[in-house]
Simulated scan of single mutants.
Amino acid sequence: MTDTLTLNGQRLRIPVLATGATSLMKQLSDDNIPFEQLASVIEQFPSISMRLIALANSAWSGSSVEVTSVMDACTRLGFNVVRSTSIALVVSAPFDPHRCPAFQPVRYWQDSMLIAEAAFGLTPEDGMPSPLCSQTMRTLGLLHNLGLLWLADSMPQETQAALLLSSADDSLSVSEALIETCGFDYCTVAEALCNEWQLPDAMSRVLAHQNTPAYKAQHWQGTELLRISKQLIRTLGTATPESLAQIETDTLSIEFATLRAEYRRLEQLQPRINDLASSLFLN
């Protein structure tokens, strides 16, 4: 692997994941991984193990019983929290987004974790290609904005300008603003990074085409599910039955009752997820 990658004439430093991190993400995306194996895999990453044990002993977990092992931490926190937290920690480690003052790490991970929950909860039991199980969709939700994280580190000035442009103009998306200032959006960058990190092709395709509504090639179901999940998260706290009905879900045969139930679940989860992201990335 080279140290840099050139995109549209721009040279970006390629962040290096910890040894075994790609394998960790693949195993954490397995719906059928046994609980003991989950703990065993995480134990190979001391920094993640320590953060999970600390989280299990924090006020956030709401228990007074001391936790001293990864297995006990996994039991206390639960499958979904352990998976999301572990992936977020291993992915964020090689980046320094503080180089871009307009980038807000806590807000970034709050949105990513909520979209991950939505993608997980809305994954249909039938109709999705085999690589795109509910846990893989959770991972894709966490990584959907991965390119922005990389750009905040590798092209901080251009990313700063894009974030300020988008903030000043509600009609201008971050993706569109990045094209103006960098020459490409976070989807293009995410695809390149997935290839460098040798992540599965399904993940690369979904991240690359998540903002392309007309995309109907391989694994289009994942891009469609990410689109629906992002729309749903944008409505949290303000949605009405009428506004939820405007979210197009027919392509994946997601019933309105399912969408509404997921919205209510996410509303209840939002404060806890926001607190989780704050406890992990507020520094």
Rank of each mutant, 00 (worst) to 15 (best):
L12Q: 06
L172C: 10
A21R: 07
I115S: 08
R51T: 13
T249H: 06
Q110N: 13
Q110I: 07
M203K: 05
S63E: 04
L244W: 06
G20Q: 12
P34T: 00
M50F: 11
M25D: 08
D250I: 06
S92W: 01
G78F: 03
V206T: 04
V67A: 15
F79G: 03
I247H: 06
I87S: 00
D3Y: 12
S23A: 15
Q221I: 03
S40Y: 10
A192S: 11
E248M: 11
S171Q: 15
Q268R: 13
S112C: 12
T159L: 14
I42Q: 08
S204V: 10
F120D: 01
L280D: 09
A214M: 08
I14Q: 08
S253A: 15
P46A: 10
D30V: 00
L7Q: 05
C194P: 06
E180C: 12
C74R: 06
V174Y: 02
S63V: 14
A56T: 03
G121N: 13
E176P: 01
E66C: 09
P129I: 04
Q27N: 14
D96N: 14
E248Y: 06
E242F: 07
R51L: 10
M113A: 10
D170W: 03
D3M: 15
T240Y: 08
S29V: 02
I233G: 02
Y215M: 01
D185H: 05
L236G: 04
L5D: 03
P271D: 14
T22I: 07
S61A: 15
R99I: 01
Q37I: 01
A119V: 00
P105Y: 09
S112F: 00
E158P: 03
Q218V: 01
I179S: 08
L89S: 08
V91E: 01
N8L: 10
L163Q: 04
S130D: 10
L244F: 04
S171D: 14
A116M: 02
T68V: 13
L5K: 05
P241H: 03
G127S: 12
G9Q: 09
T212D: 15
A73Q: 03
G9E: 05
I42Y: 06
A56V: 05
C133K: 12
T75Q: 15
K26C: 14
N32W: 02
L266Q: 12
L142H: 07
T240K: 10
L77N: 09
Q198P: 01
A208R: 13
G183F: 08
T68G: 03
C133W: 01
E248V: 09
Q221A: 11
S92P: 00
S69R: 12
S173W: 04
T238V: 12
L280F: 07
E43K: 11
T136L: 02
Y215I: 01
D96Y: 11
A56N: 13
Y263M: 11
L244G: 13
V41T: 13
L207V: 00
V91G: 05
D185I: 00
I48G: 05
F35G: 02
P105C: 07
Q10A: 15
